[in-house]
Write a protein that binds this DNA or RNA. Structure first.
Lengths: 183, 183
DNA sequence: ACCCCTTCTTGTCAGTGACAAGATAGCGGC
DNA sequence: GCCGCTATCTTGTCACTGACAAGAAGGGGT
């Protein structure tokens, strides 16, 4: 229990997410993390190899969570809202996921998780020509842009506090996308 | 010339932009910057006070450049393309501007520059009701999302190398926005 | 000639990430 | 019951970083 509690990796990940939520990724040090988890300053390095390794693990977890969330939404027009909700509910994950300079971009697990997310997005749009690609691009861009601007505090004067998701739903209506399986 | 060349601040800013372009903002240290500029390790601190102060100066410069670029484009539908072009041409600035954790968010100069950019965006959309707000939001989101996803390497399989701006122009057509001054 | 302010330097300190080497615990084989 | 083996975690150390303090160099005004 004391030396080998076997759960350290999970504890470290959870603790790291908490620290990131408080202070942002830049202000998190491996030593802070170790202190917060009550272990020695080199324990994190063993599990993640690197500081980038820690963030890689978080990015992988985030991609999987995002894919899971997207997989449950069938209506294309609501997919964007799901994306925005993910960005607010899993802010720490989202924060890391789109900062490739923080983690190991070519980690196999990460690449796989990312591919799954990307495939889900792609599959949500009917058709497979360049037009369909553009629709994927447009839908992803508007959702990602909204979520990112929101997180960086650039929309404070345009969007209220709790209703970000609802606000986005109305914004997304300006985008010309097909409804749910109109066949 | 040697001791007081009076241009150090500008030189440091330019050098910093170069370093950021090479290695990203996280990998830039004040001491690297000082070395690259050929001055002592504390010289940057004098001009910018802080590491965050350096990034604040870059963010201010970026906001002004962006505002200038946007001010020259009258056609609303091309505003997004201008935004995307700015993000690729001034990648280092863009990178910093939307990382509030890196700089002093409440710097007066920064707030002013940001307000000018925001006003320009706002003024480009006719009307002033909630509908107009939503159009601003939609246009900004899709441009920002596209630019951000592009920069983070998430669109590599969807968008070619040099034609990002053209590709975005086509994507943006899916957005329902009024043409240039349809009065 | 003097003062004063800005600009830049030298010196120093705690904190950080990475690495090396050692300690501890659990587990299978015999 | 004991021996090794390996994964897990600790202790010790190093170069580097950001921040700060104190001082030197230059320039302008009077």
């Amino acid at each position: 229990m004391t030396y080998h509690h076997g759960d350290l990796r999970r504890v470290l990940l959870d603790t790291a997410l908490g620290l990131i939520a408080e202070r942002g990724p830049n202000a998190v040090s491996l030593r802070d993390l170790a202190r917060a988890a009550g272990v020695s300053h080199a324990a994190p390095a063993h599990h993640f190899g690197d500081k980038a390794g820690l963030f890689t693990a978080i990015a992988v977890q985030g991609q999987r969570l995002l894919a899971d969330a997207l997989a449950e939404e069938l209506d294309l027009r609501r997919l964007g809202a799901t994306y925005v909700r993910f960005a607010t509910e899993h802010a720490s994950h989202f924060e890391i996921m789109f900062r490739p300079d923080l983690y190991h971009r070519d980690d196999p697990e990460l690449v796989a998780a990312k591919a799954r997310t990307s495939d889900l997005l792609r599959a949500a749009i009917p058709g497979d020509g360049r037009d369909a690609d553009r629709r994927v691009l447009a839908a992803w861009s508007i959702a990602h842009g909204f979520a990112t601007l929101l997180r960086s505090g650039n929309l404070d004067h345009l969007v209220g506090d709790g209703d970000a998701e609802a606000e986005f739903a109305e914004v997304a209506e300006l985008l010309d996308l097909p409804g749910p399986t109109p066949t």
